[in-house]
Design a protein around this nucleic acid. Structure first.
Length: 467
RNA sequence: GGUCCGAUGGCCGAGUGGCUAGGCUCAGCUCUGCAAAAGCUGCUACAGCGGUUCGAAUCCGCUUCGGACCUCCA
């Protein structure tokens, strides 16, 4: 599986996170099913232009110039940021994370093959892919459902400044003047590779000329992925280098795509701290992850405080059920629960195009059974409980990647002491309750609540939980 | 302007011809010293109009509104 990774010239925002989360789920589920997955996700560290015009500047080069940094300092900074964010959201690392600058040689070789096949031409030290020529021999626009003639008629900028023969052509190699911070020698002089090329070259190198899954954001479908196909076919022949294309849909804010240019993006940090004008409060990374998984990856997902709060409550319900399940004792009786059907439904949900909303709905069905068992309404055998534990662990933890939130701060010893103290306090409150000293009992509960500790009175005594 | 997609209850969001999605919210009830948690019940959802069909949220047409892409975007 190949997924288009980030261009590391600025901090990632939540919209970016959604896409990588989508493919994290694919990766996790395929592994759960027992597939050996080679997951390649690139880092774009050169070649991504700020525009498609000939004076378009390299995004990383521009950032480096503006901040007076080495381009590789920019790359390192935002690559680190990207990795940090992926870790925060519990998104697994890919098997291979190649960079564009690490594959300049392969890119030049690929360009030479495309030129040999007659689909590219050189102008003033730059090399362009000829879409018109390519389309005479192969389909172009198949993936995004576009037709060459329509594209020709609807090209926006028609000013004749371009050295391209055709507005649809795209750069494989761009000549660089001495002011460019990033440039490499090539058969056509000093320059740097075009953006689309790196993905073609790296996917082919690590996954072969034909591979199973190619993912990326919906906004990359055209032209990026269309160009990738053309380059692969133009260099290696064949017709369809990718068996399955998967596109994650956009995260929207007030119905509009979250994008840097719209100024409506949240950084993960702003979301967690709640430090943003559109946010009522902060949310934990797992709440955000759960929120995103409540929608199907192919649908747009609208961001809102209400939706985040719903996710927070829902996830909490699941987590509580996990705790309940851990301490559940086997019972015998009539009203049982079909744990096998439950597991089967979980698989069926994911088998249907990674339908995480259905999976979550199914998990809530399991929650009902767990709570029912805890209340003595549902009878579960030891085998049933073991099965439920296995299914929840597999789907909630492994597939959905929702890990238990850890109490913040403190070493394990301190945490242990805190727990002992809390147990003592709750015990004292139970004594107060037994003496009908409601004032003391309520005061203890209120003060602990102010510190994020919730006390619950059950029929078998009181217990406390964080958060 | 072109291409494509979408419109589901108070909110989010699944579902593609007949069967309760689910979560959250709100109200009532059970339990409880009071809460919380858990449970039960309800808030009579499928943008509008027409068509196909025994039957349409689901298929077809039109209308209205929204979005994405066509330029860099996850």
């Amino acid at each position: 599986m190949y997924v288009c990774g980030p261009t590391v010239y600025s901090n990632v925002h939540l919209g970016n996170v959604r896409t990588f989360l989508t493919f994290d789920i694919v990766y996790r589920y395929l592994q759960h099913l027992g597939f050996k997955v080679r997951y390649v996700r690139n880092i774009t560290d050169v070649g991504h232009l700020t525009g498609d015009t000939d004076d378009g500047e390299d995004k990383i080069g521009k950032k480096a110039r503006l901040e007076n940094l080495e381009p590789m300092e920019v790359v390192q900074r935002y690559t680190n940021d990207f990795h940090d964010v992926m870790n925060v959201f519990n998104i697994l690392r890919p098997s291979i994370e190649p960079t564009a600058t690490g594959h300049i040689v392969e890119q030049i070789e690929s360009i030479l093959r495309i030129m040999t096949n007659g689909y590219a031409y050189e102008v003033n030290g730059s090399v362009y892919f000829s879409v018109r020529k390519f389309s005479e021999d192969h389909p172009y626009g198949e993936l995004s459902g576009r037709k060459i003639d329509e594209l020709m008629n609807n090209t926006r900028d028609l000013d004749g400044q371009s050295e391209k023969r055709d507005p649809l052509d795209f750069a494989l190699w761009k000549a660089a003047d001495s002011s460019h911070l990033m440039q490499w020698p090539s058969p056509w002089g000093m320059g740097f590779p075009g953006w689309h090329l790196e993905c073609s070259v790296m996917s082919t190198k690590y996954l072969g000329e034909t591979f199973d899954i190619h993912g990326g954001g919906m906004d990359l479908k055209f032209p990026h992925h269309e160009c990738e196909i053309a380059q692969n076919v133009g260099a290696n022949g064949g017709e369809r280098p990718v068996r399955y294309w998967m596109h994650g849909n956009m995260l929207t804010v007030n119905g509009r795509k979250m994008a840097k240019s719209e100024g409506n993006g949240f950084t993960p940090e702003e979301l967690i701290t709640g430090n943003h004008k559109l946010l009522d409060k902060g949310y934990t990374p797992m709440t955000v992850r759960f929120f995103m998984l409540m929608g199907h990856y192919a649908s747009t997902l609208d961001f809102s405080n209400e939706a985040l709060q719903a996710a927070e409550k829902g996830l909490s319900k699941l987590e509580k059920a996990m705790e309940t399940l851990a301490g559940l004792e086997p019972t015998s009786g009539e009203a049982g629960y079909d744990v096998q059907a439950f597991a089967d439904k979980c698989h069926a949900a994911m088998n249907d195009d990674f339908n995480t909303p259905i999976l979550i709905a199914t998990l809530f069905d399991g929650v009902k059974a767990v709570n029912g068992a805890a209340a003595g309404r549902v009878a579960l055998s030891a085998e049933d409980i073991a099965s439920l534990k296995g299914t929840f662990a597999a789907f909630l933890r492994d597939v959905l990647g929702l890990q238990a939130e850890r109490a913040s701060g403190g070493s394990e010893e301190v945490a242990g002491e805190t727990e002992a103290l809390l147990d003592l306090i709750v015990d004292m409150r139970t004594t107060a309750k037994a003496n009908k000293d409601w004032g003391t009992a309520d005061k203890i509960r209120d003060v602990l609540a102010a510190h994020g500790i919730t006390i619950q009175d059950g029929k078998d005594g009181s217990s406390w939980t964080r958060g």
